[in-house]
Computed example of a mutant assay.
Amino acid sequence: MDIKLELVAVPVTDVDRAKAFYERVGFHADHDVTVSEDIRFVQLTPPGSACSIALGKGLTRMAPGSLDNMQVVVTDIEEAYEDLRGRGIEVTEIQDMPWGSFVYFSDPDGNGWAVQQTTPRTAPAEG
């Protein structure tokens, strides 16, 4: 039996501000539906990802900014670092660990994201 992670709710205070931020990061806005006065559903998907995030009103009881260390994976951390900086996203310097190289950023509410290259930049070249 396959179990696939499809959607993760990201708690935010201002849906429009958060949507604009994630679009600037490079996520694609798939849906933006106001269901009722109490429910708005915005779905965004990172490029190449099978899993999306959901922002909105009436979607989760988590406190805005309480999501920490959501992780996305890239093949080239230096390219990701430069791309995010070029989009005006504040990211940390690249950090090399034995299990990968990382940069970190937060959305306007403080929800934290890790961007990982699974092979550390410092790993010996194969061959």
Score class of each variant (00 low, 15 high):
A50W: 01
G100F: 06
R121H: 05
F41L: 09
T75F: 08
A80G: 03
K19R: 14
G88C: 09
A29E: 14
T119A: 13
Q116I: 14
E126V: 11
G110K: 00
P120A: 09
K57P: 05
R24W: 00
V10I: 15
T13F: 06
R40E: 03
P98S: 12
V12A: 00
E90M: 04
K4S: 09
L84P: 06
S101N: 10
I77Q: 03
K57L: 14
F102W: 13
W99G: 02
G112V: 01
Y22H: 06
I89A: 11
V33F: 12
G127S: 05
Q95M: 15
A125T: 14
Y22M: 02
L59T: 10
Y104T: 10
E6N: 15
R61E: 13
L55I: 09
K19P: 01
T34I: 06
S52D: 07
Q95K: 13
P124N: 04
P46F: 10
V91R: 02
T60C: 12
E23D: 08
D68V: 14
R61Y: 08
G65D: 12
G127L: 01
I77N: 02
R40C: 03
T92M: 04
M62L: 14
G112E: 05
V91Q: 03
T60H: 08
E23N: 03
G86S: 02
D109K: 03
V72M: 13
T118E: 11
D2K: 07
I94V: 15
L55Q: 09
S106H: 01
P108I: 13
K19M: 04
